[in-house]
Design a protein around this nucleic acid. Structure first.
Lengths: 149, 149
DNA sequence: CTTGACCTTCCCATGATGGGAAGGCCTATC
DNA sequence: GATAGGCCTTCCCATCATGGGAAGGTCAAG
């Protein structure tokens, strides 16, 4: 099976398959006489695994760990579970961060008349904040970074 | 005021101040005889505005729009409000996406024994999914992208 | 044998940020 | 006045996962 077919069958783009090979997430594919990459069902299976892990928000590093466990017949499910829950914790941290932003902004928007006049509490807040985050506590200092607009 | 001082005063790193200038988010700073960038209180004020918008998750493009409105004395607060609420919608979309991931993963983790045996529903799911997302509905097709692990 | 659909590698771009090098400037202390 | 060290300048590189596209080779069907 050529890379295009493998891409269609796995849901991972040909571009990304080559990339994953390049960074060592997957082993180098076998090559045909004319240097075409050739994939077995086995390998497509692995690509599908990667695709799903990606859909669950795992980074390439995380996927690498998952693949290692997947291949390891003597793995302990506790290790898989730990990996998964650690990722869940990351996700929840990120969610809380975004939720704080959304709540703050929503509060300000609620206070904004939204008419034809120029005065606006949203801009006022950006100019000089006066603590508009409604509860949720926590010392939000280190952000996992990432911008969303 | 030099760039370092402006950075300390605004919470925007010197590196980022130069970057914002380079991409045109802020106008080129005045220069001293020796080519040092010089900032007025006015400009530090703008940098603080940018910093806060950034903290609320706005992208540089979004911040650019906000700055334009901020400067526009004849703006309509409705425009600011629309911008803010549109960003809130983006944030909530992203949150829902991450929440779906977290919920799916948490469900799988709950079903995992987490012991010394190798069998694990998390890996099984990655191998061949059988719809583990608990409710939340929606046709999740286009992701705003972004990996979190 | 041509056409079109594939494949190959290589380079570039994204967005926001930081790291670091090489070199110039400025001020306080000796 | 000279030196130290703390600023500043520009320029290049890296991140992370992804896509775009060019230049050129291959293959199968007509």
């Amino acid at each position: 099976m050529n890379i295009g077919e493998a891409a269609r069958a796995s849901g991972v783009s040909a571009k990304m398959i080559r990339y994953y090979e390049q960074i060592g997430l997957i082993p180098p594919a076998a090559r045909s006489a004319s240097s075409y990459r050739v994939y077995s069902e086995q390998e497509v299976h692995m690509l599908r695994f990667i695709r799903r892990a990606r859909d669950l928000g795992f980074s390439v590093d995380g996927i690498s760990d998952l693949l290692a466990l997947w291949r390891d017949q003597s793995r302990q499910s506790a290790d898989v579970k730990r990996l998964a829950l650690s990722h869940v914790a990351d996700l929840r941290r990120k969610i809380a961060e975004l939720e704080d932003m959304a709540a703050t902004l929503e509060n300000l928007a609620r206070a904004c008349h939204g008419n034809t006049r120029p005065d606006c509490p949203i801009l006022s807040e950006l100019e000089a904040p006066r603590d508009n985050t409604p509860g949720h506590s926590s010392t939000r200092k280190t952000s996992l970074s990432g911008r969303y607009s």
